[in-house]
């Protein structure tokens, strides 16, 4: 009963807290630009509104157009449930759960790309092609990061492997994972979440034709993914071993807030990269993670 309650609480955390992050990022951006900006809770209002709206479906779209976002959303929530939350651990932990998490993210990507292709639009085709192509590099970086953590802690399950290394290894890992976070969540400098009508974007262009509840699910899923990566980054580099559980929760929250603000600052201070530079930056992220791996290797030898 307790575990069931814990499960529900955890689900509620992911469902309810995740949409806060994009709001904070937007606030930071507004603050840097000297504007008042939309309310922090704007995404919640948007989601509530979209959830009640009707759906316009392309004449070309199959039922997969609606099923795709649903599957992607379930996959993202399930991946999130595997992610440990500080002392509370994950909803479920087993050897090799980290692989399941990465592949659930891949499933979400497949479904989003599939739904995008349903419309037969060149824009959406472009976005889907970019999304699946850049994923190759970010997945390599993510694997290198996971291997680094695994070698450092001697474990392949998330609960035990998220115990940070010290020094340069942690810094390298932080740089690598932060870049992967930006790429996977379609933030500047990889993508610009503001430009809905440009040729130059990845994620936003894939969801151009979605509306109503499917769009709500997509937006919510994206915020869950952002929180998931933020938590991964924070727990991979922030040492919280000595803290009490309340202190750890506080540190975790502060870490998440810090990363979110950093994303906002990057977004305010940098321009989006030209597309041919994207692979270069992702390769750099991969190399950061690879060097972190080498540090982990050396550290324990």
């Amino acid at each position: 009963m307790i575990s069931f309650l814990g499960f529900l609480l955890r689900l509620a955390f992911w469902l309810l807290v995740a949409p806060l992050l994009p709001g904070i990022i937007n606030k930071v951006k507004a603050w840097v630009a000297g504007r008042r900006g939309p309310p922090t809770l704007q995404l919640y209002y948007d989601l509530a509104k979209l959830w009640r709206k009707g759906v316009v479906l392309s004449t070309l779209a199959s039922p997969g157009f609606v099923a795709g976002p649903a599957v992607a959303w379930v996959a993202l929530i399930s991946a999130a449930m595997l992610m440990p939350l500080g002392a509370a651990g994950g909803a479920l932990s087993f050897r090799g759960d980290v692989l399941l998490l990465i592949y659930l993210l891949a499933l979400a990507r497949f479904c989003t790309a599939w739904a995008a292709m349903e419309t037969g639009s060149a824009f959406e085709g472009m976005g889907a092609a970019r999304e699946v192509s850049y994923a190759v590099l970010s997945e390599a970086a993510l694997f290198a990061a996971v291997l680094a953590l695994g070698i450092h802690t001697g474990s392949v399950s998330l609960v035990t492997m998220l115990s940070p290394m010290a020094g340069a290894g942690a810094l390298l890992l932080a740089a690598g994972l932060f870049t992967v976070l930006l790429a996977e969540n379609c933030r500047v400098p990889f993508d610009d979440p503001n430009t809905h009508l440009e040729l130059t974007m990845i994620h936003e262009v894939m969801v151009l034709d979605h509306s109503g509840p499917p769009l709500a699910v997509i937006l919510h899923g994206a915020s869950v993914k952002l929180l998931l990566f933020t938590l991964l980054l924070v727990q991979a580099v922030l040492p919280m071993g000595g803290l009490s559980s309340a202190g750890a929760a506080g540190a975790l929250a502060a870490g998440v807030l810090g990363v979110t603000v950093a994303v906002g600052l990057v977004e305010s201070l940098m321009a989006r990269l030209a597309f041919r530079r994207v692979p270069l930056l992702l390769t750099t992220a991969f190399l950061f993670c690879l060097f972190a791996l080498l540090m982990a290797w050396k550290g324990g030898a």
């Binding site: 009707g54 392309s58 004449t59 037969g120 639009s121 499917p214």
Partner: peptide
């Protein structure tokens, strides 16, 4: 949900 909220078919919007 989509059916309940009302579902319309239209051309692919495509910007």
């Amino acid at each position: 949900m989509a059916l309940g909220n009302g579902l319309r078919r239209g051309l692919t919007w495509d910007c």
